[in-house]
Amino acid sequence: MATTGDLILEVNNIEVVYAKAIQALRGLSLAVPKGKIVALLGSNGAGKSTVLKAVSALLPMENGLVTEGRISFDGETVEQSAPHKLVRRGLFHVMEGRRIFGDLTVEENLTAATYALTGRSGITPDFDIVYRYFPRLAERRKSIAGYLSGGEQQMLAIGRALVAKPRVILLDEPSLGLAPLLVEEIFGIIARINAEEGVSMLLVEQNASVALSIAHYGYIMETGRIVIDGPTEKLVADRDVQEFYLGLAHKSYRDIKHYKRRKRWLS
């Protein structure tokens, strides 16, 4: 693994509790090297979104609290206080379910994201970069965002991140509710953004195969902790990952027992 200086994001042994009662993460650690795409995979309710919300300091808005551990962005500790300041420092969270501003136009949504540039001198807002990656948004720049198709809304959500000129983007299930062809198109663009703009990414997905197709490194989590991690080539070659996350083979009860044994051993 890379040394601390090469990491844009480092999560160390964090525990997260919602509403002072529900423990969502138990001693979770992960790291995102500069310029890389790291995938965070897992099934429903595993705690993937919680990891992202902890990193972007949005947890307190949902009555969640990081009770243990440390998160650092570019070497500095992330405080759970002011999410907008973190965005202005270059950490952008594209939230689950797109969360575009439905009654604003496409262009106004992008304008809202220019607040991320507050306090950063010498950067002028650039919407053309958004329209270059997503030409479809250019045609609809004056449309009310709430009436865009699901795919266009996802493009807009990523487009807002582009306006913010971040150093790391947290992407929460960009494939959610999209047709397979569109998923491939959007993931292709995500990979291009990473390669061309040099933005690091922490990519949360349930769709493991498409996520691993563009990621450099992957973590698989279950019920609040990491169970398997490794470089993508190693993960896709792993028999258990193939069976249980990429759905390449039939699952029999014996396999599941075997998997559970191995998981316990790994964690």
């Binding site: 949902e62 952008f92 501003f101 009654d103 809202a112 607040y115």
Partner: peptide, 24 residues
């Protein structure tokens, strides 16, 4: 004024507004 957009964005979705850098 851009602040009008910040106000409307905050009105629609507070968490999303913070997530794009608006000081809610």
């Amino acid at each position: 004024w851009r602040g009008g957009i910040a106000l409307r964005a905050t009105a629609t979705d507070r968490a999303a507004a913070s997530s794009v850098g608006i000081d809610v």
